[in-house]
Design a protein around this nucleic acid. Structure first.
Length: 153
DNA sequence: GCCAACGTTGGC
DNA sequence: GCCAACGTTGGC
C-alpha cells in the first residue's frame, strides 16, 4: 500500500470547525461544488491525512488534523431539492458531486494562522496561496512537516 | 469556442 | 461589509 497522501481542507468554523469534528468524531464532507476539489476528493484513500483549515475565521489558519475514513461516494445533498447544495443535473445513477468522510485525529497545540504560513519562506510555494479559493488542496510532505512543527512551537 | 456577466470564496 | 480573485454560465 502506498503512503497516505496529504491534504488541506477548509471549513468555516462558524459552520463546522475542528471542535465540531472532535465532538462528532467523523463527518461527511458534503457541499463541495467545485470540480477540481471534487476530483481531489475522488483520489483520496482511507488513511490520507488532512490539515483542517479554518477559513473566514479570526484568525484563519490550520486548526487540526483529520484523516480520510471513507473514500468518495455521492454527496446526498445534491439530490435534495430543499438543500442549498441541490444539483438538478444529478441523479442517483449519475451523481455529479462526491464527498469523503473525515475522522478526527487531533487538534493542533495551537492554531497556525494564515499570516504565519505566509511569513514562512519554505511555504511560499504552497498551493494554498496560489489557489486561494480552492477548498481542497494537496499538501507536500515538507509542507506538512513545517506546519505541524510550527504548531508545536 | 469566446468572452462578458455573474456568483462565490475568503481575506481583511 | 467590502471587494479582489477566479470559477461558471450562457449568449452569440
Amino acid at each position: 500500500m502506498s503512503a497516505p497522501s496529504l491534504w488541506l481542507m477548509k471549513s468555516e468554523p462558524d459552520v463546522f470547525g475542528i471542535d465540531d469534528l472532535a465532538r462528532k468524531k467523523t463527518e461527511g464532507w458534503n457541499g463541495v461544488r467545485n470540480y477540481e476539489a471534487r476530483n481531489f476528493m475522488k483520489s483520496m484513500k482511507v488513511g490520507d491525512k488532512v490539515l483542517f483549515y479554518h477559513s473566514n475565521a479570526k484568525p484563519s489558519g490550520v486548526a487540526g488534523i483529520a484523516e480520510v475514513s471513507r473514500t468518495a461516494y455521492p454527496d446526498p445533498t445534491q439530490f435534495d431539492p430543499k438543500s442549498d447544495y441541490f444539483e438538478p443535473r444529478a441523479t442517483p445513477a449519475a451523481p455529479v458531486w462526491f464527498q469523503v468522510d473525515l475522522r478526527f485525529v487531533s487538534k493542533l497545540p495551537r492554531l497556525v494562522p494564515l499570516d504565519e504560513l505566509r511569513g514562512t519562506p519554505a511555504l511560499a510555494d504552497m498551493a494554498l496561496f496560489k489557489r486561494s479559493r480552492l477548498s481542497v488542496i494537496p499538501v507536500t510532505a515538507l509542507e506538512w512537516k513545517i506546519i505541524t512543527g510550527l504548531a508545536k512551537s
